[in-house]
């Protein structure tokens, strides 16, 4: 008798558990739309381009602020120095954000034309990690206060002064740059 009770109990427990799971799953899918209103919004603009848009593979930066005295405005040549400004606009995001910037420049790949300096940002502190990546946190408070960090990447087209006629091809890669935003869990 005792064994029978045990067996039946196990059966009942299994059945109840499964039914409960199934019920929960169905409930969750059925109330999908009301649940959306409670999901934190994730929307970040990088120089007015949506970073969270999965249909876009890359973002183009054309507005490098070149500091030239012997070169036409907006143009670059060996010896030119400038700054790439990336404006991060997380205004409508409802979670804290961790920003990671990865740069590969001429110092690590000679096929790349530009050399990058120390990356800084307004409003947030960027930290250089051991992999050579810069990371920073945009807190939820900052986002609520409308903070839009401007990440500044100083670049230089180093004049190697070889006196040769080397020409940078039209297909040359000037800088290998990527930006990653992840939800900051603390």
């Amino acid at each position: 008798m005792k064994k029978q009770v045990v067996v039946i109990s196990l059966l009942v427990l299994s059945f109840v558990y499964l039914v409960n799971k199934t019920t929960y799953a169905v409930y969750a899918s059925n109330v999908n739309r009301p649940m959306e209103s409670n999901v934190a919004y994730w929307n970040i603009l990088l120089n007015d381009t949506n970073l969270t848009d999965t249909s876009v593979n890359s973002i183009s930066i054309n507005n490098i602020d070149w500091n030239n005295t012997h070169v036409k405005d907006g143009k670059a040549a060996p010896g030119s120095t400038g700054v790439i400004n990336l404006v991060v606009d997380p205004t409508s995001t409802e979670v804290a954000i961790k920003i990671t910037i990865k740069v590969i420049d001429n110092t690590s790949d000679s096929d790349i034309v530009l050399t990058a300096g120390t990356i800084t940002s307004s409003n947030i502190t960027l930290t250089l990690d051991e992999d050579g990546n810069y990371t920073g946190i945009i807190s939820l408070t900052d986002i609520s206060n409308g903070v839009k960090p401007v990440i500044s990447i100083p670049v230089e087209w180093v004049n190697d002064d070889l006196g040769g006629n080397e020409v940078v091809s039209d297909n040359a890669k000037f800088l290998d740059l990527s930006l990653e935003a992840t939800q900051y869990m603390g």
Partner: peptide, 18 residues
């Protein structure tokens, strides 16, 4: 379910004519 987005940034440089 952690949010995550990343993009490559193409740095376009307008070369001066010599």
């Amino acid at each position: 379910a952690r949010y995550e987005s990343s993009k490559d940034v193409n740095v376009n440089v307008d070369k001066a004519i010599f």
